[in-house]
């Protein structure tokens, strides 16, 4: 089984990389990009029976820094 974890900077936390990407899109001529937020996707290949609660614990302990980042878990 697999899980996919999305980690994003929390709303309100400045994302300088996202801002740089927004500027780059603008300079390539893409108009109307009002904002870019950049995050990461972490794919976990898990032993059968691993629970979403266990993945959440992984997020809390390591995968996300909850001071500045939020996360979501997709089990599949």
């Amino acid at each position: 089984m697999k899980a996919r974890v999305h980690v994003m900077l929390k709303t309100g936390v400045l994302d300088p990389q996202g801002e740089a990407v927004r500027h780059a899109l603008g300079s390539l001529g893409f108009e109307g990009v009002n904002g870019v937020r950049q995050g990461k996707v972490i794919e976990l290949d898990l032993a059968e029976g691993t629970t979403e609660a266990q993945v959440t614990e992984m997020c809390e302990k390591l995968l996300a820094n909850t001071v500045i980042e939020s996360y979501s878990v997709e089990m599949s």
Binding site: L9, P16, Q17, V67
Partner: peptide
């Protein structure tokens, strides 16, 4: 407490 983010100027 707190965290260190990417420099504002990248």
């Amino acid at each position: 407490p707190g965290a260190l983010r990417r420099n504002a100027g990248i």
